[in-house]
Structures are given as structure tokens and as C-alpha cells.
């Protein structure tokens, strides 16, 4: 048991503070989407900046194919996986998967990781970020799959696979 606690602790250290990578101050509610090909993307924030941030936190990232990145970190019984679809350097589709032992409650580190993604398009809007956080936390606690449209993005929470939580944010079709 001690071993497990130590491993979870390590993940906490790796994931905590990811939020700090995206400066949240001084950005106001400007445009929250930008057209990119047939969909919309998160404006300004480059896919490479997010990938660099994950790499800096120890998540190994690989470009699996053109405009598609996967960052996968496995620590003990936990897997953290981020996939990013990039269009013209920006992010059109980002998804995070956390896999953990099915009978364990998600730890704070797990929730931090998911919430960091949930807020990506709206880092500047603290009030909205908090609303989104609450929405995600409620869905995970209720252990239910859910879909929502927030601004120009579709949000998906999938909890129906035992032991895994997936959160996906996709720029809507134009």
C-alpha cells in the first residue's frame, strides 16, 4: 500500500501546476474560437505550446502522424494520455484519457489533469472556467457520460468504461 501511495504522490507532482503553463491573467473575453479549415480552433494557443508544456512536465509526446500528437505517461497503475489534433498549428481537437484501477476514486492529480484540459479554450475567463470545472467534476462524480456545447466547442465526458475517464474538447464544425 505504501508503494501505491508513493506512486500516486509522484503523479501528483508531475501533473500539479500544469495550469501554471497557461498564463491566465489579463486575458479578457475576446474571441474564443478561430476558423481553421472546416472546424474552429482555439485561437492563438499553439498546439506546440501545449505539447511543450506537457513534455516539460515529463509526459513523453510523439507525433503519431501528420497533425496528430499523443502524449502518454504511465505511472504505476495510472495512465495519462493526451491526444491533440492540430490544424494550421492550432488545436482543433484535444482529448485526455485517464485510466486508473476501477475501484479507486479519481485522485486530485487525476482531476487536476482533466480540469486543465477542460479550461484550455477559456483560461482567461475565470468565472467560466469555474463553471466548466464544476460541470466536469459533477459528471465524473455522477459517473455519467455527458455532452455539452460550450461556446464554439463540444465537450464530452465519458465515464462508462470501467476505470477510465475521457474528456474531449472538439472545435465545432463551421
Amino acid at each position: 500500500m505504501l508503494m501505491v501511495a508513493a506512486i500516486v504522490g509522484l503523479v501528483g507532482a508531475l501533473v500539479a501546476g500544469l495550469g501554471a503553463y497557461l498564463p491566465t491573467s489579463r486575458y479578457q473575453a475576446t474571441a474564443t474560437t478561430v476558423p481553421c479549415r472546416r472546424v474552429v480552433c482555439i485561437p492563438v494557443l499553439k498546439a506546440s505550446a501545449v505539447i511543450d508544456a506537457l513534455k516539460a512536465k515529463g509526459h513523453p509526446c510523439e507525433q503519431e502522424r501528420d497533425e496528430y500528437w499523443k502524449c502518454e505517461l504511465m505511472v504505476g497503475t495510472l495512465t495519462f494520455e493526451t491526444t491533440i489534433e492540430e490544424v494550421e498549428g492550432l488545436i482543433s481537437d484535444v482529448s485526455m484519457l485517464v485510466v486508473r484501477p476501477p475501484d479507486e476514486e479519481p485522485t486530485e492529480a487525476v482531476m487536476d489533469y482533466l480540469l486543465w484540459l477542460a479550461a484550455l479554450p477559456y483560461t482567461a475567463d475565470e468565472a467560466l472556467t469555474e463553471e466548466i470545472h464544476n460541470w466536469v467534476v459533477d459528471r465524473v462524480e455522477a459517473n455519467e457520460d455527458a455532452e455539452a456545447e460550450i461556446g464554439g466547442y463540444n465537450y464530452y465526458v465519458v465515464t462508462s468504461n470501467p476505470g477510465s475517464i475521457r474528456l474531449r474538447v472538439i472545435g465545432a464544425l463551421r
Binding site: 466548466i132 455519467e144 455527458a146
Partner: peptide
């Protein structure tokens, strides 16, 4: 985006589609 942009809100879709 500067003119009167509406603040996005959470529009839940039919949960459990």
C-alpha cells in the same frame, strides 16, 4: 470579436445519448 460578444454558456446536451 470586440463588439458585444456574448459570454459562452454551458449548454448540456441530452446526457447519456
Amino acid at each position: 470579436g470586440c463588439g458585444g460578444r456574448e459570454r459562452p454558456s454551458i449548454e448540456s446536451k441530452d446526457a447519456g445519448s
